[in-house]
Design a protein around this nucleic acid. Sequence first.
DNA 1: TATGAATGAGTGTTCATTCAT
DNA 2: GATGAATGAACACTCATTCAT
Lengths: 188, 188, 188, 188
Amino acid sequence: MGKAARKRAYILEKAKGVFMEKGFIAVTMKDIVDACNISRGGLYLYFSSTEEVFLALFLREAEYEQQRMEIAIWENLPAKEILLDYLEKRKKLILKKSPSLTQAGHEFLTRNSDAQMIKKWQFDGIAEMLRGLILYGIQTKEFKQVDAGTWARHIALFLYGLELTAQSLDLHEGIVDEQINFTIRGLV
Amino acid sequence: MGKAARKRAYILEKAKGVFMEKGFIAVTMKDIVDACNISRGGLYLYFSSTEEVFLALFLREAEYEQQRMEIAIWENLPAKEILLDYLEKRKKLILKKSPSLTQAGHEFLTRNSDAQMIKKWQFDGIAEMLRGLILYGIQTKEFKQVDAGTWARHIALFLYGLELTAQSLDLHEGIVDEQINFTIRGLV
Amino acid sequence: MGKAARKRAYILEKAKGVFMEKGFIAVTMKDIVDACNISRGGLYLYFSSTEEVFLALFLREAEYEQQRMEIAIWENLPAKEILLDYLEKRKKLILKKSPSLTQAGHEFLTRNSDAQMIKKWQFDGIAEMLRGLILYGIQTKEFKQVDAGTWARHIALFLYGLELTAQSLDLHEGIVDEQINFTIRGLV
Amino acid sequence: MGKAARKRAYILEKAKGVFMEKGFIAVTMKDIVDACNISRGGLYLYFSSTEEVFLALFLREAEYEQQRMEIAIWENLPAKEILLDYLEKRKKLILKKSPSLTQAGHEFLTRNSDAQMIKKWQFDGIAEMLRGLILYGIQTKEFKQVDAGTWARHIALFLYGLELTAQSLDLHEGIVDEQINFTIRGLV
DNA sequence: TATGAATGAGTGTTCATTCAT
DNA sequence: GATGAATGAACACTCATTCAT
């Protein structure tokens, strides 16, 4: 990795904290500059707007997460275990008090309807992944014979909505657990 | 209605368009001034911040909607019909292509955790209403013997998330229908 | 007194409280409007700036005070008693916590070097009055044989300065008494 | 002196002219910006309010003057000569036709009762200094056996008041001389 | 006369963006 | 490449002043 690439990676890493803290809209170039401890002009050598920073960050995160997921799925672990792991991970994000990258991504989408990549990642990719998992669970008899596509989309949408709203609605852990268990019971 | 009240109502009406267009965070007093075709100072005679405008607007909308709902529920129609009507109404909001006040309300909540009124309206009130409806449906044997509270919260959360995300995710009507029907099938 | 004159007098009375509270510079037409409980436009029917209000007020006060003084002096009271009374009156103004009309007048003079009337009243008139009093006291052998003009101007300047600075310097009563007694001792 | 310090010094120098011209209350950040020929935002890099500018300016001036004074006092010159020099210096300030920083400082104190530094400089410090000088003069038999504290405060107050009022009252040099000589005669 | 809604100019303050070093 | 000082546009907010009623 060249020096420039390393600097870009550094900026994205620091920016991630900022976006997780403040969402997307409220973030200014100054926030990122401050978080990175670099000069105002320095940031502009690599990115020329918060949009650009966020897109690059989101792309990086998406690629990374995609890999982690595929590995987990194809390790032949029990479907139920994979699902529980996944839900557990989402639950942590949901219960986090500060905005998540999901929230920032949502704010970004609200203003930039043509950000296909984010759209794909925030929903399509996850729904597809869940569908694969459900089909696999049906095959291993762990799950009921349900319509995998519909269920996958339902879970994806439900979790996405839950993550966006949990903090603003002040949902406590009890309700989040209740809702997640409710979802699993429908499937298993 | 006095002159001042009429002017307030006029401002709220114009501001509604602005909030539906741009959400809450991105709206400035100047946006509202421009939409109303009044002077900068003129707006300050009625409202002194975007927060104040939005709260007044939201309260007005909430009161109006509340009335519509209560009437429908207490007309003793079959539970299933009331639910379908309600879901149909939400579906229309969900499929509307331009941003709704729900999105603006969500942004408001993201920055203003103490806006109890909005929180109540966006979620608590609706969950409670749905719970009453489900209990009523169970009593009339229209619905299965389910945990009314859990289901009510599930539907409320799911619809809220769906409304927030539908446009940004570009969900087409097929998927929205699929998801709504899926929800009803679980209940009936 | 006609209706208009009565209204003018009313406005001046209320404005006096405002100027005593806030000095001259910080007072806005809105402050006066609020204190008078009249409409914005209404005030403009009588005065078209804070300058105008203040000048009218100062003139009125000056005329009133002038009369009181002259009466006291020509009642043939002992010179020392008249002087003590006068100093006692000034002391009260000096120890008052909020700005006095003197302070407001000073602020006015700072911005309007051509306000001869105020200048005359704040200093020349008082010096002249004190000079008459000192001459009278010398004649009645109550005061030493001093240069009446110089002493009069000294006392006038000293009291004026003391009144302006007492609050901002946080002078407590002990120091004010000390300084006033010091002045009297030089004379008697 | 670094570049930033030089710029700060430049701003203070230009601001000094503004404060001497307009006092403190009437000065806006725009006035300072215009006097410095810099951009609106540029000023905010160094100071974020007129208060801040003025305090920095006053501190600088105070430090400079303090040094001059201490040197004069401890050079063991005759007390009378030091006093005359000091009064001569004050007389120049008093007769200067344009407003002085003293007026601005006074306005600042009027609105900002907790500016101890200014209070100390405008009065306490000077009274203390004069007291030391009078005691020294009594010791060398140059001055009469007077109450040094009372006299020191009297002179400090009198000069302060004189400086504030001289221009607004349009006192000509004859009167200022008369008053200063009068003060000296009381002491020597 | 009297009202008070309405205006718009002026000021404070923040930030994206540029540029000399 | 890197810096950070500087700029200026944009927005929040206040207030003197006007004007239709």
